[in-house]
């Protein structure tokens, strides 16, 4: 009887404690540190990378579609930017081009499944925001089987040309860029880092997007330490904001 009583009381106590949830004293933060940027290519079955289902647009058809058109594409997750209020922002790509999925309907549970390489079928609307072509108001389903992670496309020779935008949202690399200026959004670490880089006499504004690569990532720390005059190789996603605005995912000293 005594043992039974002790057991019951212990169970009740545990139940009440469990119901109290997180008692962590550290300040909580709803932000997503987003350490989910793709690692160097870990290719799955590349040959099947562009095998599309019935009713799914090719990249060419997607690119030709007018803004505000409903689109359905299949693509592979390359990186996740953020999850917020059941909405996910994700970089995806197939063999022919890339798709930026902005605030796609997504549960937190499903967001965890969107690891780099995961193939998804997305239906949404083609939209444009300050030059960034993206898919909005989208829903998605995971397609089991194929996985594919893109190698960075070397877009150095396209900087400053009209052809660069054809690779919008793709995972790209730029070689031998000279750092002109580095500044934190709020003048101190914690938010985005703005990086101005130069090549062949032209300047370009790149960015370390804190929701993609948080303050604890190597790239955030490395970019924060860059100085004007440093010559670097950069990898990132070819995002657009009033012109090219690559979201940097790695930076190394140029050889």
């Amino acid at each position: 009887m005594k043992k039974f009583l002790a057991l019951i009381l212990a169970a009740v106590l545990m139940l009440t404690l469990a119901a109290c949830g997180d008692t962590n004293d550290e300040p909580a933060n709803n932000g997503d540190d987003g350490n989910s940027v793709n690692e160097p290519a870990e290719n799955g079955d590349d040959a099947n990378a562009d095998a599309a289902s019935e009713g799914v647009m090719t990249y060419e058809e997607y690119a030709a579609a007018a803004v505000d058109t409903q689109v359905t594409v299949e693509a592979y997750v390359q990186a996740k930017q953020s999850w917020w209020d059941n909405k996910a922002t994700v970089y995806t790509q197939d063999k022919d081009g890339a798709y930026f999925l902005y605030e796609m309907a997504c549960s937190e549970e499903d967001y965890a499944k969107l690891t780099p390489g995961t193939k998804i079928k997305v239906t949404g609307y083609k939209s444009e925001w300050s030059g960034e072509v993206e898919i909005t108001d989208a829903t998605f389903e995971i397609i089991e089987g194929d996985t594919w992670v893109a190698e960075a496309f070397d877009a150095t020779s396209l900087l400053g040309t009209d052809d660069l935008i054809k690779h919008q949202n793709e995972f790209v690399s730029f070689k031998g860029l000279t750092v002109e200026a580095v500044s934190y959004k709020n003048d101190e670490p914690g938010d985005d880092i703005y990086v101005t880089v130069g090549l062949n006499g032209q300047s370009y504004n790149f960015c370390v997007e804190v929701y993609l690569t948080g303050t604890d990532t190597d790239v955030y720390k490395a970019v924060g330490e860059l100085k004007a005059g440093d010559v670097v190789d950069i990898e990132g996603f070819l995002y657009w904001y009033e012109g090219v605005n690559t979201h940097i995912t790695s930076v190394t000293a140029a050889n």
Binding site: D22, P27, A28, N29
Partner: peptide, 22 residues
């Protein structure tokens, strides 16, 4: 100082931190 660019972020972080007295 903890700077924010968005009122809604502050709002959501405060709500999260009320439960932990932080």
């Amino acid at each position: 100082l903890r700077p924010y660019n968005d009122y809604n972020r502050i709002y959501n972080d405060v709500i999260t931190n009320i439960s932990t007295n932080t």
